[in-house]
């Protein structure tokens, strides 16, 4: 009985480990989220806003 439980414990662990290995791909969405957060902090931007463009009248027009 005890052997069977140990056996099923090992089997389940292996199966779950297999699933985890297969399913762990690069979490692109999560990476984008942390990238945005870190960039906002480094560049001192307000979260969820695009940086304001410098006002056009102060910027020499490049034609």
């Amino acid at each position: 009985m005890q052997k069977r439980i140990i056996g099923s414990l090992v089997a389940t662990s292996l199966i779950m480990a297999g699933c985890v290995t297969i399913n762990i791909y690069f979490p692109a969405a999560a990476a984008e989220k942390v990238a945005d957060k870190i960039i906002d902090e480094v560049w001192q931007l307000k979260p969820d806003t695009k940086p304001a463009k410098p006002s056009p009248e102060n910027k020499g027009e490049v034609k």
């Binding site: 984008e32 990238a35 960039i39 410098p54």
Partner: peptide, 14 residues
């Protein structure tokens, strides 16, 4: 490459 894209997207006008 994720950061590369986001630095560019978030870069300020100019």
């Amino acid at each position: 490459s994720t950061f590369a894209q986001r630095w560019i997207d978030k870069a300020s006008g100019g």
